[in-house]
Design a protein around this nucleic acid. Structure first.
Lengths: 351, 351
DNA sequence: TCCCGGTCAGTCAACGTTGTCTCAGCGTGG
DNA sequence: CCACGCTGAGACAACGTTGACTGACCGGGA
């Protein structure tokens, strides 16, 4: 731990337009015009103003500006995700940030940790700061508390999960079809006993993915067996335990479908611990870093996170630009990535 | 794509204290008092005000409030990271968010992508929005542009990399010592020819880590050989190419030290492609998800990201609380995690 | 010469809120 | 019975900025 000077001797407050105006010998309004690039200012005066501003280290106060301006825009959007630290949320945030940057906006982030109360709290906190719009990966199942905000003119777009009890734009992955694709892929390799391991079905995406699983089995005339279906949370440890249980069954599954990131990783760990990674087929929903480097590589149904985020942000800004069309839900397709684990045949390892 | 109603029939603007006051039949100031929980309000009147506020869906305008308030605080802090999507930045952001939440603050994030111009731009954008403070993982090598902001009372803390040409608080990992630990660990397994693969040394952390590498060799009386040292960028592909080159040398290294996340992953890929993952020892700087699940597991020098972020945020808030002590740089220790790859002996695989 | 239109800087009020001050009303004690 | 202090609500101005308007000045056409 090294030491230096105190960070500021004279913590005098920030210069305002008033001070710039005084130094340049003009009216405040003229400073305002120069700062905002209004062309009807004499170039000589404008130069004097800019010089004064630079000298004082003047920076416009956007909060004051947004308060006074007609539209009240703050050039800030709010983003509520599950957890800013997890790869899905982080990638989504980054994409939204990119679109926002193109519009001169910054992003305020908040992590919900699957807590509906926190969702409400943070949404309110964002609204209190008068963000121009909200991008939400919701935690709760009741968004009616946002109706009044929507009426008051706050734009909002839901991502990954659709809103409940609220009519709002949304962008979601085609979860059901993704699951169907996964199961059909496993069926192709001769599997008939395919276990399902997923998040709690109270989470809508988990419900949709589970629904896809059942639907695909039905199409293949395979009877649904609740014994090889587990709705664990989204924790790795729960997934590990469940995987071990499933594989210890007398009539153990020959293939695994895991419908969420952490569940997939838990299953991978369990399979490797049991030495079954080359014996039991496995397809996961959601891609994850380094899935390709494992052996076997983990086959996944990948979501197009970049497209989810970009679409959501673009919808939001379109609304901010005055788009009054009916709300819509955009479905983004998923993609099967074959890496080895999903291509293990019912008889044993591939090749 | 499904359809619904337009999101808001009457986009009337948000109710203000004035309207609440009118409905409750009191003065605006009284509404202000109720909203701010000032106790000297008649309970009956307070109840009437609250009722009116609820009825109108009133939400305080924090931007107006912060403008008027004496301290001008916005309850918002700015966070500039390398890339909100990468695991290090994401984890750091989340930690800062957690501390901020405890203080009623939200976090505005911006990604710099190692671009100094972007750093300046975004720092200005955050300051224009009057964030209370800044947490910065800097991209540039000249932070003098922040001196005037600091003088104007904006608090700032640097993380991961120290500020240049600016006197400010910082929290960094003990990069040099981390490297020394890594190299000494490899030496212990009998390695004498240890390659270095890292980011450009213009990045201060890379320089420090490289410095640790050289220092450790010196301590062990091993001559430095520039031939087995590569300063590639932080891209996986460049790291793959460099690793392949190194291992194709006539006098190839028996161990690899990679000083950055993506470089480590590139090296892992290259080693596996060459089938040398069990032959060439490898220690990486920075932990990464699933490093433990590979075979062999990748031994790393792990940074304590949680502590970096928490310490930085706490320093920031201490400054905001009026701490005027001299600036300081806190060094956070790193930790060696043995997982297999770093324990391969010079003769061949361990065990 | 005068008037008119155009150009461009300045004045004033307002955005939504809160700090400061005022003042009405009440109870208390001399 | 009155002066006094206290409680609690309202009036007013101000935070830093911008929208709407005003008004000074200039050049050109009648």
């Amino acid at each position: 731990m090294t030491q230096g000077e105190p960070p500021s001797r004279t913590p005098r407050s920030r210069p305002t337009m008033r001070e710039v105006a005084a130094l340049a010998g003009v009216a405040i309004k003229t400073v305002s015009r120069v700062v905002n690039g209004v062309p009807t200012v004499d170039p000589a005066i404008a130069a004097r103003v800019r010089e004064a501003a630079d000298k004082l280290g003047y920076r416009p106060n956007l909060t004051a500006s947004s308060l006074r301006r007609g539209d009240g825009r703050t050039a800030t959007v709010g983003m509520l995700v599950e957890d800013a630290a997890n790869p899905f949320s982080a990638a989504l945030t980054r994409t939204v940030e990119n679109v926002a940057r193109g519009r001169g906006s910054l992003v305020l982030v908040g992590s919900l940790d699957e807590d509906p109360a926190r969702e409400r709290e943070l949404a309110q906190a964002l609204i209190d700061r008068r963000v121009d719009g909200l991008v939400i990966v919701p935690a709760g199942r009741d968004h009616s508390y946002l109706i009044s905000e929507q009426r008051s003119g706050t734009c909002m777009v839901f991502v990954d999960r659709e809103p409940s009890l609220l009519d709002a734009d949304a962008v979601v992955s085609d979860n059901r079809q993704g699951s169907v694709t996964a199961i059909e892929h496993l069926l192709k390799s001769g599997h008939r006993r395919i276990a399902y391991l997923g998040d709690q079905v109270t989470i809508s995406t988990a419900a949709q993915r589970f629904d896809g699983y059942r639907h695909a089995l039905e199409l293949a005339h395979i009877e649904y067996d609740a014994e090889i279906v587990r709705h664990v949370g989204s924790s790795e440890s729960a997934a590990i335990a469940a995987t071990e249980e499933l594989l210890a069954l007398p009539d153990a599954p020959t293939a695994l479908f895991t419908s969420q990131n952490f569940v997939t990783i838990g299953a991978v760990r369990a399979l490797r611990a049991l030495g079954l990674q080359d014996t039991v087929a496995h397809v996961g929903f959601d891609d994850f870093p380094l899935a390709d480097i494992l052996s076997p590589g983990i086959s996944v149904i990948a979501q197009d996170i970049e497209r989810l985020g970009r679409t959501a942000a673009e919808m939001l800004f379109r609304r901010l630009d005055g788009d009054e069309s009916p709300t819509s839900t955009v479905t983004v397709p998923t993609r099967l990535i074959e890496r080895g684990s999903g291509e293990i045949t019912a008889a044993g390892p591939v090749g």
